[in-house]
Design a protein around this nucleic acid. Structure first.
Length: 893
DNA sequence: GCGGACTGCTTACCT
DNA sequence: ACAGGTAAGCAGTCCGCG
């Protein structure tokens, strides 16, 4: 029973007869012979076809799936560990696309479907959680995935018809991307491979908790314990020529590619450069490493071909913005130069994605741009999402500064520049023992999202995928978004912010002043814990059981089911408990797996923290308002009860936000008592988060700073920290904090205050005397919309408009009076401007000159407000001055 | 015509 | 295209002033 390998070579469009044998009705998976397993690599004009056969007892990692239109079925990318190659195979299971209808076959047969829409009908049973009963459904098979929308058009009501085919394939086969499989030659299917590194046993303490999650641990265990393969990775960066004011674009690839750098994780570095007579070689600098292989080309075609030849050797190709620039440009430039046949890049113009058949493409711009990754995985360490900012924040090195435009750069400098970009790109995927790559793998496994989709999509897609996969595993009908609306579209609470759907967290009024010895307790993963503990899920909220109505959600009119475990609470609770009961303690223990465990912990945190948010988003396909509304209601209840408890114990609560309480000088016993009480009474675990030597609170919420016992400072929300504060003030603020961090007692404050006085006086003087540069004074603000979309002519918008005008004028000058039809200033861009005494009150930094009249008054009031925030609070305990209302000028004289 | 009270827009932060 | 809550600055508007 040996598979015929060449049955499906390129160009063949017929489907083998065996595929029609739709047997195995038990699992609804269709088997046929493995039709084609080949990995093509073309070198030069020769086409090499490497026939390949899946072997038994070989480790294959499933990387991703796609819909392969040529084959009309799923295409699967496997990583073959034995040969360190990516294999692209077509669906060996013979899965057929479908959607579901509630109508019986007889009824469906009366409908008129466009010709060729229906393959066949099949009657099946599934469990409908909303009806809490079995339902009879008809599975409507279609020839290709593109007929599914046509079925929907005719029937109106269909289920599971909006799931992407390549993802649906994974849910049906229950194969998990990122995980390791063996090929079972006898049965023509993948089987789970034994993990060589599953040495990580679950400690009994954790296991006791995880037992309650019926069988989930068996299903997910390999996600957490399996090793991640060591694959050949290459980072790629290209440089092109360009003209002033014209950014090279794939849609018009008129500029030459002058340099391509490739850096891999096996120590190889390539610089492919175009010989240009007009360009100086320049001086070879020391920065260029000796192991760098430099290849020079006279013809751009040869340079590109060589890049292709190198790229196809790798399993993972990584880039920074390769989806939107490097690879589409390379693709189109190759087409422009008529070298189509060796082009390994697959550019999906509609989605904007670039892929390789023989490799995974991971565009790090898209990954780091992901807000959940940015906040939960990297703790907001980088504030801007460009290569330089991210690399500087995470690696400590940024892009190279260059002396002139790319086009005019001496060759050595060009190589250095391009090489640096490729190097930091590689590092951004592999730093800290491959933290980002491992993060991608684990998230992909747990969320059941193909790896290349994972990098390009946001948490809502990941959580959706996880929920869908689990519905399918349990034989449950996946509800349509409309089905969930029966639970109510009107919130039970009223939001404090206008335009929001429901009420959120509770923020406690701070007690202004300086407080020594403050303990901060917080609830561990408050919202996920609530969802898990209180059984919140779309089918359990407002359930049909009369008895459950007693189990009401505090501060709302909702109740929650006590009979059945909710699917959402089960999954979210499970992952939360894996994290807090098992992985988190493990990641603090010294072991050979410690770094891996830390990454694992962070991956779970990303999923967990985002899971509540998606439930409250009306764009999420399993959006359920009462669930989100209840989650925050339980949250408010928890923090309010904790404050009451503290007060009963006689401990002063100084502040609290959402899931935290700041306690004034509590004893160890008191802390312990509150923590024990909360575990028992609230069923949500409260933890000791941190202790401040002292904390300075103002009358403002979400604004404070605390000093730890080791003198490090924790600043929250203060203006001095915000990025739209001019640099001279951010610096001044940092200096003041440094002085304050050295304060140990109330007496120290007097000394510190004198130092601070001097410092602030100095800032005033420097401002008056014009000692600050434009950079120092510039206010940086993000333009979140395109210029024309603004309703209000805000200052940063005014500045951006001035800059746009000036750039247009400049363009006109260099292009014979033709004005550019595109705008130079785009949404998302940061605008730097300076406050002036000109008619518009602002000027963009780019147009600032020595002669520009600064609006000193404005800047002075900025100094006032920034330091008022600090001293308003400081003065309360140290002097008897009233809260925060003193003007700094009066105060410092 | 001008300033204060007010609302709404915008950004950046906190949890 | 994950949530709501808070602070701050400014633009724009209305109102009262006779």
């Amino acid at each position: 029973m040996s598979p015929k390998l060449d049955e499906f070579v390129e160009g063949s469009t017929s489907i083998p007869k065996k595929i029609t044998q739709e047997n195995n009705t038990k699992t609804n998976i269709l088997f046929h012979e493995l039709n084609r397993v080949s990995n093509k690599e073309r070198v030069g004009n020769k086409v090499q076809v490497e026939s390949y056969q899946l072997k038994s007892y070989t480790d294959y990692f499933i990387l991703s799936t796609v819909y392969d239109a040529k084959f009309n079925g799923a295409g699967i990318k496997l990583y073959d560990t034995a040969n360190q190659r990516v294999l692209y195979i077509n669906d060996p299971y013979g899965h057929v696309p479908y959607c579901l209808s509630r109508e019986p076959i007889e009824k469906l047969e009366q409908y008129k479907f466009p010709k060729g829409t229906i393959k066949r009908f099949e009657s099946i049973n599934k469990k409908d959680l909303l009806a809490s009963s079995e339902v009879n459904l008809t599975k409507i098979y279609t020839p290709t995935p593109s007929e599914v929308p046509k079925v929907r058009d005719v029937l109106g009501d269909t289920w599971e018809s909006k799931i992407k085919y390549h993802q649906n394939w994974l849910y049906d086969t229950q194969l998990v991307p990122g995980r390791k499989y063996w090929w079972d030659e006898e049965n023509y299917k993948f089987i789970e491979a034994k993990s060589s590194t599953s040495g990580m046993n679950i400690p009994d303490t954790a296991l006791n908790y995880l037992k309650q999650y019926e069988g989930l641990i068996d299903v997910f265990i390999d996600d957490f314990t399996q090793e991640i393969p060591d694959m050949p990775v290459v980072a790629c960066d290209i440089e092109t020529e360009y003209e002033e004011g014209q950014i090279p674009q794939p849609s018009d690839p008129k500029f030459r590619i002058i340099c391509i750098c490739l850096v891999d994780n096996r120590g190889k570095e390539y610089a492919l450069v175009l010989n240009r007579d007009e360009i100086d070689r320049g001086e070879k600098t020391e920065i260029i490493p000796s192991e760098l292989i430099i290849e020079r080309f006279t013809a751009e075609e040869d340079l590109i071909k060589r890049a292709f030849e190198l790229l196809v050797k790798y399993t993972v190709v990584t880039s920074f913005n390769g989806d939107n620039f490097d690879f589409p440009y390379l693709h189109e430039r190759a087409r422009h130069l008529k070298i189509r046949e060796t082009n390994p890049i697959i550019w999906n113009k509609r989605s904007g994605d670039c892929n390789f058949k023989s490799a995974l493409h991971l565009d790090l711009y898209r990954f780091y741009h992901n807000i959940a990754i940015k906040t939960y995985a990297f703790g907001n360490k980088y504030r801007e999402e460009n290569l330089n900012a991210i690399a500087e924040a995470l690696l400590g090195i940024g892009k190279l500064k260059i002396s002139t435009g790319i086009s005019e750069l001496p060759e050595w400098e060009l190589i250095n520049y391009c090489l640096r970009d490729a190097k930091i790109t590689l590092d951004l995927l592999l730093f800290d023992e491959k933290t980002p790559l491992n993060l991608i793998f684990i998230l992909s496994r747990v969320s059941r999202t193909p790896i290349d989709d994972l990098v390009r999509t946001s948490v809502s897609t990941w959580v959706k995928s996880l929920f869908y996969f689990e519905h399918r595993r349990r034989g449950l009908l996946i509800p349509n978004p409309e089905d969930l609306l029966i639970k109510g579209t009107q919130a039970s609470s009223e939001a404090i912010i206008k335009g929001k759907k429901y009420k959120g967290a509770r923020v406690i009024d701070p007690v202004p002043g300086v407080h020594f010895n403050v303990a901060v307790l917080d609830f561990a993963s408050l919202y996920p814990s609530i969802i898990g503990t209180f059984n919140l899920s779309y089918e359990t909220i407002l359930c049909n059981h009369e008895k459950c109505k007693e189990n009401h959600v505090p501060q709302t009119k909702y109740w929650v089911c006590q009979e059945n475990r909710g699917i959402m609470s089960d999954i979210i609770g499970f992952i939360k408990d894996v994290r807090v009961r098992w992985i988190k303690p493990e990641s603090k223990r010294k072991s050979s797996n410690q770094i891996f465990n830390r990454i694992l912990e962070r991956s779970l945190k990303v999923l967990i923290n985002a899971s509540y948010g998606v439930l409250g988003s009306d764009r999420f396909p399993l959006y359920c308002l009462p669930v989100a509304d209840s989650t925050t209601a339980y949250g408010r209840d928890a923090i309010e009860k904790t404050i009451q408890k503290a007060q009963i114990l006689g401990i002063k609560v100084l502040y609290g936000d959402t899931d935290s309480v700041f306690l004034e000088n509590p004893s160890k016993q008191e802390i312990e008592e509150i923590i024990n009480w909360s575990t028992a009474e609230l069923e949500v675990s409260l933890e000791m988060e941190k202790i401040y030597r002292y904390v300075v609170l103002s009358e403002r919420k979400k604004n404070y700073f605390g000093v730890y016992p080791d003198s490090s400072v924790d600043v929250k929300g203060l203006m001095g920290k915000k990025r739209n504060t001019p640099m001279f003030l951010q610096d001044g603020f940092a200096d003041v904090l440094k002085i304050l961090s050295e304060v140990h007692s109330e007496e120290d404050f007097d000394i510190a205050k004198n130092k601070v006085k001097e410092l602030v006086k100095n800032i005033y003087q420097k401002l008056e005397n014009g000692k600050y540069t434009g950079e120092d004074l510039a206010i940086t603000m993000q333009l979140t919309q395109p210029l024309h979309a603004y309703k209000v002519n805000a200052q940063h918008v005014k500045a951006a408009k001035q800059l746009e005008n000036s750039l247009q004028k400049q363009y006109k000058k260099t292009h014979d009076g033709n004005s550019s039809n595109k705008s130079f200033i785009k949404a998302g861009q940061l605008i730097k401007y300076i406050k002036t005494q000109t008619d518009k009150h602002v000027i963009p930094l780019e147009l600032y000159t020595e002669d520009t009249k600064i609006d000193i008054k404005s800047y002075r009031s900025m100094i006032d407000s920034i330091f008022d925030q600090l001293f308003g609070a400081l003065d309360i305990d140290t002097t008897e001055v009233a809260t925060g209302q003193i003007n700094l000028m009066d105060f410092f004289g």
